[in-house]
């Protein structure tokens, strides 16, 4: 499968901060949506900043459509749509003025498609952006990202601030975007239910380190969330335990290769949210945090 985005050994440190991106490596295949999951400050925005060029990387490489990415390559940037979690445009402009601006910047700016998305998202064309709610701003940013024939969307918390109905519409648009198999999306979101709905691949990041890269289908086919008593943990094959967390009712354990679970072990349905909680807050056998067990 063709890789639309390849991030290899990406490193980034900040002066006066202990945080660093630690050799982050992953790829986003064509025709897929990759969910990028982690707590605040885990490194999602830093990774996306290093990919899009708003931050200078300290090491590693980023390839887009097979070509090394850097800030001077306008032909690559033409094909990337970016949505940040905060407002992107001046509040004094209205969406139609914004279209005039982008028609001078993007060689393949498609005004008709843009107007289509404005209508779909119920955004007024002539109202000042400054009067928009956060949700409307996010929808406008998404409309822009979808209107210049991009092949890669990098969406940092793009669904935050959207009401459930709007989120549904936007997620449907994202799924349609990658349907032709030529495009891809890297999507970070705190709302893991959004990622669960549309993502094909999942990447979990914590403290600047990738914890786990996995196909979503594989998660639900081969992973299990075991609920057991304190003593029962010993019955599990430790090599299959990804993380465990003590709760009021016992221990929640995330395991892979669920077919290796011993008879009689109690499992329950789980969501990406449950999995995220275990990976971020859970422990490993050695009592260390999960990243040491799962480091790639």
């Amino acid at each position: 499968m063709t890789e639309i985005l390849e991030v290899n050994q990406l490193k980034k440190t900040y002066p006066e901060s202990a945080f660093s991106l630690d050799a982050v490596t992953f790829s986003v295949p064509a025709g897929s949506i990759t969910g990028f999951i982690g707590e605040n400050g885990a490194g999602k925005t830093t990774t996306m900043g290093a990919i899009t060029g708003t931050l200078h990387k300290d090491g590693g490489s980023v390839k887009v459509f097979g070509e090394p990415m850097d800030g001077t390559k306008d032909h690559l940037k033409e094909q990337i749509g970016v949505v940040f979690d905060s407002m992107n445009f001046s509040g004094e402009l209205n969406p139609m003025q914004l279209s005039n601006v982008f028609s001078q910047i993007y060689s393949r700016w498609n005004r008709e498609r843009y107007v289509h998305y404005l209508n779909l998202f119920k955004l007024p064309g002539k109202k000042k952006i400054g009067s928009f709610s956060k949700g409307m701003c996010m929808k406008l940013s998404i409309a822009v990202a979808l209107s210049h024939d991009a092949r890669l969307l990098i969406l940092d918390e793009a669904t935050s601030g959207l009401d459930p109905v709007a989120r549904e519409d936007v997620l449907e648009v994202f799924s349609a975007f990658v349907r032709d198999g030529e495009r891809a999306i890297l999507l970070s979101s705190h709302i893991t239910s959004d990622i669960e709905k549309v993502a094909d691949n999942l990447i979990f990041i914590k403290n600047g380190t990738i914890l786990l890269k996995v196909r979503k289908r594989e998660v639900f086919e081969t992973f299990a969330l075991v609920q057991c008593e304190e003593g029962e943990l010993e019955r599990l094959d430790r090599r299959t335990v990804l993380a465990y967390r003590h709760t009021a009712d016992g221990v929640d354990v995330l395991v892979k290769e669920k077919e290796k679970l011993p008879q009689g072990v109690r499992t329950r349905d789980f969501s990406i949210d449950d999995m995220t909680l275990l990976l971020m807050k859970g422990e490993t056998d050695e009592g260390s945090r999960t990243e040491s067990l799962l480091r790639y």
């Binding site: 899009t52 060029g53 708003t54 800030g71 001077t72 306008d74 032909h75 940037k77 033409e78 990337i80 970016v82 940040f84 905060s86 407002m87 992107n88 445009f89 001046s90 509040g91 004094e92 910047i105 993007y106 060689s107």
Partner: peptide
């Protein structure tokens, strides 16, 4: 000032224009 307040200064880096 407006570019910073609106977030445009970060967004424009991602556009197909050079710094």
């Amino acid at each position: 000032k407006r570019d910073v307040l609106s977030g445009w200064n970060r967004f424009e880096i991602t556009l197909p224009v050079k710094r």
